[in-house]
């Protein structure tokens, strides 16, 4: 949208370059699905092109992920989901079943309904003891397994990781939320 100036060829070339990452992702997916058999490209090339065009018409290119952000997010996410799973498994299997569930509200700092915010909301449910139940304009309603402290710290940390990965700025931690 920002390229009203410039010759049509430049505009066309620019959008081609910006759709390349997506084209590569779909080509890689095709290779994974077919085990990279050379003969499969007879069907694969048209399918990858159609998928790229379709994807571009659904979500315009623009979101850039920071490689350093991803490199930090992946180990963080894996470690936290292991902790979360062991925690829930322990509570489910212990005869005393130690749970103290509660609803809390969290005020996200990421822009509402942006791609990073949606990613954040989905990641919440995979973290230790938190499950995103509903979102309103300013508050997320989150169900927690145990209403101990540390929930908000964990959410704020996750949000910062997501922001770094999408390369967006968010405000410093202030009032993060509270019990419902």
């Amino acid at each position: 949208m920002s390229e009203h100036e410039g010759r049509p060829v430049d505009v066309w070339w620019g959008s081609l370059v910006r759709s390349l990452p997506r084209l590569m992702v779909f080509a890689l997916l095709w290779m994974i699905l077919t085990g990279a058999q050379a003969s499969s490209w007879r069907i694969g090339v048209p399918i990858v092109l159609v998928a790229t065009a379709w994807s571009l018409s659904l979500v315009a290119p623009g979101t850039r992920l920071s490689p350093r952000g991803i490199a930090r997010f992946v180990p963080f996410f894996l470690a936290r989901s292991v902790v979360g799973s062991i925690d829930v498994a322990r509570r489910a299997l212990l005869p005393s079943m130690p749970i103290a569930p509660a609803m809390v509200r969290y005020r996200p700092r990421l822009a509402p309904s942006s791609a990073p915010a949606i990613f954040f909301i989905n990641a919440i449910s995979l973290l230790p003891g938190t499950l995103c139940a509903s979102l309103e304009a300013a508050n997320l309603h989150i169900h927690v397994v145990d209403d101990e402290a540390g929930v908000f710290e964990g959410l704020a940390e996750l949000e910062e990781h997501v922001a770094a990965m999408f390369g967006v700025e968010i405000s410093a931690r202030e009032e993060l939320g509270g019990p419902e």
Partner: peptide, 12 residues
């Protein structure tokens, strides 16, 4: 609580 059990334990 059941959703917690399904999403987390099963993912790991």
């Amino acid at each position: 609580m059941r959703l917690h059990a399904m999403t987390k334990a099963d993912n790991l």
